[in-house]
Design a binder for these strands. Structure first.
Length: 324
DNA sequence: CATCAGGGCCCTG
DNA sequence: CAGGGCCCTGAT
């Protein structure tokens, strides 16, 4: 069963991001589905974070003024934080939310690009971001495979119910994905009982890889993106689709994409060409020519923008491609 | 009722 | 390198 932890001690870290910066675009991604892992409430983003063995609860808000962007991280913990912990948490947040990103080069291109200009105006300064560690995100991408959003959420819920950690702070409850070692003595069959199907083997094998240090996120952060790609792809259950998400969202590779799944290709095809059936190959060639090293970031702006527009007004051709 | 495909990936030939 | 099979679920 899941662990329950109440966090009572609170402190605050304020971080000044590089410019240009967009709070909503960076901390809230309309294209991502809702789960018990991240909670959005009245302008605040809540989620847990693990650093080492410790668990913290975050409450994130926009602290920007007229002339300066700031992000406010309120941090709940069991004990009062040491300076060391504050420093480590701060560094981790800068990484996960790409707060030191240098995207001025992209700003220059995007503001003048016919296809990007509207989306860019609305989201100028948005970056790739991730609330999760690499391991945690891998667990998410596994539950995304070959199924509908509804079932992905069901699978994650039952996994969290059994192995996750529930943290309570500031009158909210959110879940954290288990640590890989949590599954050391859990078998593939045990996991299968949670109705995750063939994904049980992937969850088990990837957890083992992390548990016995075959792969380590901090080491990967020091390596070339090419090495990262190869090492993560070698994990059982990671293919061309997941690796794209990972290189962009976890490792902030703005130009990394060499594959689009059919449902994504249809959406991007519509945004670029006004029809649904341009092949993924043509799309990839086109965005390479047009946006080069910024191509995935550019697609991200278009993607989040269209999902955001959809949340205000129905977009029939898009609704057809999205099955909840 | 049965059949089918879904926000991929592995494995086989 | 193409294509079948995979767990389970809800839609038809």
């Amino acid at each position: 069963m899941s662990r329950n932890i109440k966090l009572r001690t609170k402190c605050k870290i304020v971080i000044t991001p590089s410019t240009p910066f967009n709070f909503a675009g960076t901390f809230w991604k309309p294209s991502h589905y809702q789960s018990k892992l991240v909670l959005y409430n009245a302008g605040f983003v809540y989620h847990g974070i693990r650093i080492g063995r410790e668990v913290y609860g975050l409450k994130i808000s926009d602290g920007s003024s007229q002339n300066e962007s700031k992000v406010v991280f309120e941090i709940w913990s069991k004990e009062k934080l040491s300076d060391r912990e504050k420093k480590d948490i701060s560094a981790e947040l800068v990484w996960r939310y790409d707060l030191n990103a240098d995207i001025k080069g992209f700003a220059l291109i995007a503001s003048k690009d016919e296809i990007l200009t509207d989306a860019y105006k609305r989201w100028a300064g948005m970056r790739p971001s991730i609330a999760y560690s690499l391991y945690e995100f891998l667990m998410v991408t596994i539950t995304l495979q070959n199924t509908t959003v509804r079932r992905s959420v069901q699978m994650m819920d039952s996994l969290l119910q059994n192995y996750g950690t529930c943290i309570e702070y500031d009158n909210v409850k959110v879940y954290l994905i288990w640590q890989p070692t949590r599954l050391n003595r859990v078998t593939e069959e045990d996991i299968r009982l949670l109705k995750v199907g063939y994904r049980a083997r992937m969850i088990k094998r990837i957890s083992d890889s992390f548990s016995n240090k075959e792969i380590d996120e901090n080491d990967l952060r020091e390596k070339s993106i090419c090495d990262v790609r190869n090492e993560v792809l070698a994990l059982y259950g990671v293919g061309p689709q997941s690796i794209n998400y990972i290189l962009f969202e976890v490792f902030k590779c703005y130009g990394c994409v060499n594959h689009f799944s059919p449902w994504e290709a249809k959406i991007i095809s519509m945004l670029l060409f006004g029809n649904k059936d341009t092949s993924a190959e043509i799309i990839l060639e086109t965005i390479e020519r047009r946006w080069g090293v910024w191509k995935m970031l550019a697609v991200h702006y278009l993607f989040e923008d269209i999902f955001w527009r959809r949340s205000n007004d129905p977009i029939p051709w898009l609704d057809d491609e999205i099955r909840d």
